[in-house]
Simulated scan of single mutants.
Amino acid sequence: TAATPAITTNTKPELLSRCGFTEASRRHLFSRGVYVLDEQTNTPLFERNADTVAPIASVTKLMTAIVWLDQKSLPMANRLEVTEDDLDNLKFTHSRLNVGASLSRADMLHIALMSSENRAAAAMSRDYPGGRPAFIAAMNARAQAMGMTHTHFENATGLSPENVSTPRELAELVKAANRYQLIRNDSLDKQKIINIGRGQLQYINSNRLIRYGQVNATVQKTGFINESGHNMVLRLLVHDRRPVIVTMLGSGTANGSRLDGVRIAKWLNCSLN
């Protein structure tokens, strides 16, 4: 009798055209730079301008949080006051955190990640051994140590267009951020009421994909300045278990980033086991 041919299975993951991953569908992505990495096998599933250096805006705050949490000398329950030094003199952005507002360090981190609160991130970088210059130096040193050779930081908020990276290198930042439980929890929280010393403020998540439960993620961050367009990074759990990192830079609108995230999540959920 003839031997039964061995059944071979293609173990390398890929996005499938029958799942909507078509040339036409890819053309409809709004983000100029995209990188999709299957973390389980370290396989890139899709890339567009993945090595193009671009401003990352508030995606910066993932590195801000990492550097902040790596120095363990400052108790998170201690309060930190917003000062004139924390005001944005670059873009003159508005903040509901007025000078004199006093928050716990834990709450500063929480709203910097969840709501992209710039004065919170600025206060965190000031309240660091050696001050803000030492904090920025630590951010850049950490990026280099992670092999992010095209990544550079000028400040902790992301408001500087000189805060740059690539979609591929941002996948390394997302991986690193995911190792911190506080970053996971804070970036995914949908809303929180913060005690600011003189009353309370309610904050919501800046990422509508997370706010409305449109994707299952373990870490996320959004970012926008005029020079960057709208950016978003996610560590998705496909079928609630398989980690895939998605980085998207340079959409013309916030809704474009959201729609890209929905489209890529659909490709992944259909294509991967």
Rank of each mutant, 00 (worst) to 15 (best):
T93G: 13
C19Y: 10
L170S: 02
M148G: 08
P167E: 03
N216C: 14
V246Y: 01
T166Q: 00
N78Y: 13
K175L: 10
V59S: 03
E169R: 02
K266V: 02
R242D: 12
G131W: 05
N226P: 14
R198H: 15
S257W: 06
A120G: 12
T9P: 13
N207W: 06
M76R: 06
P129M: 02
N269Y: 05
H239W: 07
M108N: 10
S165Q: 00
T93S: 11
G130F: 06
L268P: 13
P5V: 14
T222S: 05
L236T: 05
L249G: 01
N89E: 05
A65C: 00
K190F: 06
R79P: 14
I194H: 01
A176V: 09
V244N: 04
K190P: 09
G261H: 02
G158H: 01
L259S: 13
R32W: 10
G158D: 04
I193T: 15
R241E: 14
G100S: 04
V246L: 04
N118S: 03
Y180V: 06
E84R: 09
D88Q: 01
N231Q: 03
I7E: 12
S95E: 09
S228Q: 01
A141V: 04
H152M: 11
V34H: 00
K72L: 13
S102R: 13
A24K: 11
L74C: 14
R126M: 12
N216D: 15
K221T: 15
E81A: 11
I193V: 15
V215I: 11
W68D: 15
L173E: 08
L173V: 07
S165G: 05
T166E: 03
